[in-house]
Amino acid sequence: MNAAAEWATVRVLWARDVKRFFRQRSRVVGALLQPVIFWLVIGSGFRSSFRLPGMEDLDYAQYFFPGVLAMVLLFSCIYATVTVIDDKAQGFLLAVMAGPGSRWALVMGKCAGAVSIALMQAAAFLLLLPFAGAQVAGVDWFYLVTVMLVSSLAMAAAGLTMALWLDSQPAYLALMSVVLIPAWVLSGGLFPLKGAGPVLSALMTINPMRFCVEGLRRALYGDGAALTIGSLAETRYEVWVLLWWALGFVASAAWVASDRK
């Protein structure tokens, strides 16, 4: 395979996914409204009963904001990859698979599209940052963007692995509900790692989504907030852990994609 064909495949798939996103009005509206509603409803629901030892000033809406931001990335990547199931069997993707690009290029193109859409949706949600108690000037934007980029790459590649492996959307959605949604619930976005029971705490410790939420929280509110809530080190290790997860999921997606039956 030549590099031009690989690059062309990545570019075509990326451009197609972005174009498709903006042509589906309901998807754009849903992508913008769902996290806002989620944040407002759950955030205000738990506001009065949520107290963090040592961080009494932090209300639940503030605490929950990085969790919803992680959810925006996750759901965006899920929606961007679930269509692969039909697309690979009888859609545009089948024509791409028969084209001159390799399966690696296909995976990178789909991931690039999903990551771009996820980052755009996250950027829209970040407009609410002033209402989430964060000092906009104090946000570590470089770290925030890096964590979002690497996290969404890991999520997109994980979703793509599932979508390439499975043959039906119901199976994908079932797997999503037992793997991806619990991963988000146990990410520390809904409740902190500290204070959770031993089993939950163990699950949360090994959960890749945790590193996403902790990285986002660290970038938005600083090291102090992240450490009090449950981060394990003062160094910014989350992005490196996420990078390994991302590389692992990209490799798994490429491996599943290269299976030609």
């Binding site: 064909a5 062309a8 075509v12 024509a95 084209g99 001159p100």
Partner: peptide, 8 residues
């Protein structure tokens, strides 16, 4: 156009 680009 998309298909043409795929094939260079």
């Amino acid at each position: 156009l998309a298909s043409g680009r795929l094939y260079g």
